[in-house]
Amino acid sequence: MTDLIKIDNLVKYFDIGRDQRVHAVDHVSLEIGEREIVGLVGESGSGKSTLGKAVVGLHDKTGGTVTFKGKEMPARYAPADFQAHATDMQMIFQDPYSSLNPRMTVGEIIGEGLKLHRGLGNSAVRDSVASWLERVGLQADHMSRYPHEFSGGQRQRIGIARALILEPEFVVCDEPISALDVSVQAQVINLLDELKESMGLTLLFIAHDLSMVRYVSDRMAVMYLGSLVEVGRANEVFFEPKHPYTKILVGSNPEPDPRHERHRASTTIQGEIPSPVNVPEGCRFANRCPEVMDRCRSETPQLIPVNDVTEEHPREVACHLFSRD
């Protein structure tokens, strides 16, 4: 398996005046193999959405690079760059209510990309939109309706059709199901799964629902305050977390199993995620970590492989507990 996307030391800061900056994404490196689904989890404010947007070019990069099929993507997208890369990578957004233009019909929303990037005529666009509406479980005659006439789950299907109609190879899904009811979440997940199989998609799946991310993803990356703390196979990270933060995250996740919940030891973490403006020195998790050591407060731990390093994507943890020196 070759890497489709290579994120190398990606940095995104937001200047908020008077020499203050939000360290939203701070030196993140991550490879995503072809046809792989990588789940990205973390609390709100950890920078997962910013990372996703920076990868597809919706945010300018402060530093670092994103390489797509060995070709480096621009640090700052010009309109022509979006034009050039729209057929390579696309994004599905979290909120199916605010991410669809209420003044455009569903047909215009889904077909816009085809017109702009493939230069197809009206009737060809219409045919393609009709077939995509059916592919995502809607009906061809929905194309003349407006977004407000649809439920949340249906709107998310419209968002999926819009992103996939250009047949991109790589799609960032930014919390595609968190605004939906449980019964509808499964509909959308299964749809994504089918399309992934039939189109050979590669996905970066951002979510905060750990059980769902484990279910969907091949590998899982855990983000805390702008940095990755753990990367590995989804099942391994979920069932045998190594980083203290991952342990707490997994332990906080309530499982739909009353017997298990009754016997669960409380793993509640004290305090909240610190402000990304004044990032603490050393390990970013040190002030909340139950296993904190002296060196954690001064030395920043790097992601290092903790198991079989001959594997293409080894399990990596950024924690001094696993340092070899």
Binding site: V182, D193, P256
Partner: peptide, 15 residues
Amino acid sequence: AMPTNDPEAESRLTP
């Protein structure tokens, strides 16, 4: 419709 936390049960979700 919910994923079970069981690594063996890789069945599809039933929406």
